[in-house]
Amino acid sequence: MIESPQFPPLLTGEVVPRHTDPFDKAVSRAVAGVDSGTVFYSEQDDTLRAALVLAPETPLEEAIQAVYVAQIGLAESLGALAPPEVPVHFQWPDRIKVNGALCGSVRFASDVSDPKAYPNWLVIGIEVPFIPRTDQPGENPDETCLYEEGCIEITPMALLESWSKHTLLWLTYFLDSGFERVHNEWRPRCDTLGKMIELPRPGTFVGLDEKGRMLLRQDVMTETLSLIEFAEHV
């Protein structure tokens, strides 16, 4: 029997049926008016799937910066639970990398898409594989899972507990201090910063601006890409 995770104050957990996507459940409950701070999760052995509902009090262009907070929360929780030699990095806008290979992602959705609009809700989901998706070793060399990286002592529920605590801590920092502190923590963990990238568009990833938008240089032109463009439509 899987032990129920313990959530920090201000967050509450709600388990979903095994074949239900916690992200989809969180969105449907957010539309219906569920309390901010509710974490929907699935009790699976092979993958951590969870989604946090937030009720921002700022325009979407600021609220969407909480996606970086969730990424930092995941990196810090893996750092606390995984062996010390296991590096965790980000690939903008939504990928998590462990030891240089893709090992999970974040998802996000809101009820508005206008950067200046005030959302009623924002849902941020995470997915982290624990066991290989295929029984053919090396079939997807750019992908990995936690067990292949030596994290055999970690369970999905333990990672969920840790993620909720670290994410809540960084949400507090974000609300108190704004994006700068989040940015300073996120930037060193992004391993494509300053490099040529192909996705989401070709160019040089210069960095993030004060609103958390990607600065992408193509020849002499620099354009901005917002996380809002990569939010899921509901």
Results as ranks from 00 to 15, higher is better:
29 R>Y: 09
95 R>K: 14
47 T>F: 06
75 A>K: 02
84 P>R: 00
84 P>D: 14
77 S>A: 11
84 P>H: 01
89 H>A: 14
74 L>F: 12
96 I>W: 00
75 A>Y: 03
86 V>E: 07
78 L>Q: 03
104 G>I: 00
85 E>C: 02
32 A>K: 12
49 R>Y: 03
95 R>I: 08
92 W>D: 01
101 A>F: 11
91 Q>I: 09
85 E>A: 08
36 S>H: 13
86 V>F: 04
51 A>V: 10
66 A>K: 12
40 F>I: 05
40 F>V: 03
33 G>W: 03
41 Y>V: 06
93 P>G: 06
34 V>E: 08
72 I>G: 06
58 T>G: 09
102 L>Q: 10
37 G>F: 00
100 G>H: 03
49 R>E: 13
48 L>P: 08
80 A>L: 08
32 A>D: 12
77 S>C: 04
45 D>G: 12
61 E>D: 06
83 P>L: 05
66 A>V: 10
89 H>T: 15
85 E>T: 06
60 L>H: 00
42 S>H: 11
88 V>D: 02
43 E>Q: 13
87 P>L: 03
85 E>D: 13
106 V>D: 09
46 D>W: 08
29 R>M: 10
65 Q>I: 08
69 V>K: 01
90 F>T: 06
103 C>F: 09
45 D>Y: 15
106 V>G: 12
39 V>C: 05
61 E>I: 09
35 D>E: 11
73 G>V: 05
52 L>K: 01
40 F>Q: 01
47 T>N: 10
105 S>M: 15
37 G>W: 04
73 G>R: 02
48 L>N: 08
44 Q>W: 07
102 L>C: 13
